[in-house]
Design a protein around this nucleic acid. Structure first.
Lengths: 203, 203
DNA sequence: CTGATTTAGTGACAAATGTAACTATTTGCC
DNA sequence: GGCAAATAGTTACATTTGTCACTAAATCAG
């Protein structure tokens, strides 16, 4: 029997999840919380799995995940959210969440996913996996094609000299473009650019 | 009904998987292959999910995953292997695998994991997630503690000046240590170091 | 054609970076 | 104590990097 806690500030979501998951004979919904603080209080009931929204008033999903994992390391937490941004995904997984599903696409199969993660494995939406595997391109789209090429080469560790040879540009041109790129992305130097490319914005 | 294909060069593994998964009423094991080439041939039987070993003779798991995903994009492929190294994991996931489980830890709950991934989500062993989230530390271990601290700060995009303030060192000392670090890891500059930290050695 | 924009380049400059040689201090350890 | 090591620092130097101001060519819309 998998004991569940549902945490979402939208009562409608809570209700429908409760209804949906209550149908499964091997699930038991212990309760519902409307923010992170309430969720922590309810951990005393010893749930196996918590389904948690990220954006919530009072205490958000990330913060409460960290707190819960400290006090109750055995509880598996699955983030359940409407949108994916890479920052939230990384934060959540670092905080100790073992699942990250997008509400939209996956509600139907949620029962299987919850069972899989209740025994410890990590379950992610395919697009979420992609987001943590592939370089961050969200803000990179405001760059021109040529600028993007340069970013990719910087992110491979090439020097301005090498980049200029690869792209048949003068090193001066490369450095000028780099200045523009750093300005657009609000970064200071090529190292921060490489980190940004692979990791996304820090914090 | 989930239709399965099992691909492993060890007949014993195939047999025990077949036995184990055959018990589930909603699974049907379509067949068994002993290498990647055979596996591709058997895709004509339209499996939903393939469980595949990485190391195999004739054609390994990564190569056949790429080929299968090209021809049959709807088939979900789960890597099932005894050891994890970060390179294999990244290669497999880039090749299109949506699962990566370690044989040891997870056989018991495999049925649930297969169900979860048959509908599209990604399933990973917890340690596998960790390997792709956390920085590559294999070669980093030949560094001293102080050196490692510096690497971490470089990998966050700090300048020598900022690092020296954080660690209460002179900037001269920081730069000297950086020279030693770059030498040990056979890298050229701080940007390559940051990339190495987050991405591992290129190629 | 003409003016505006994009793309590329130059030269000059300050700051940051990486390297090297050499010194000073601290910390065990025999 | 004395020696080796690890740790920290200084100075000097060559390169690389990032910025800026300004020019040149190409592209394109009106």
């Amino acid at each position: 029997m998998v004991k569940l806690l549902i945490v979402d500030d939208d009562p409608l979501v809570c209700q429908s999840l409760q209804l949906l998951l209550g149908k499964e004979t091997d699930f038991e919904v212990l309760g519902v919380a409307y923010n992170g603080r309430e969720a922590i209080k309810m951990c005393g009931r010893q749930p196996d799995v918590i389904l948690m929204d990220i954006q919530m008033p009072v205490m958000d999903g990330i913060e409460s995940t960290i707190k819960i994992k400290q006090q109750f390391p055995d509880i598996q937490i699955m983030m359940l959210t409407t949108f994916q941004d890479e920052r939230s995904i990384r934060l959540a997984l670092h905080a100790g969440a073992v699942g990250y599903l997008l509400k939209s696409s996956t509600i139907e199969n949620m029962a299987d996913q919850i069972r899989a993660m209740s025994t410890g494995s990590t379950v992610l939406s395919p697009s979420v996996l992609k987001a943590i595997m592939e370089p961050n391109r969200e803000d990179l789209q405001e760059l021109t094609e040529r600028e993007t090429e340069i970013v990719e080469l910087v992110a491979r560790g090439l020097s301005n000299q090498e980049i200029s040879e690869q792209l048949y540009l003068s090193t001066g041109r490369v450095r000028n473009m780099l200045t523009v790129i750093l300005d657009k992305l609000e970064l200071r130097d090529r190292t921060q650019l490489a980190i940004y490319y692979w990791q996304g914005k820090q914090q």
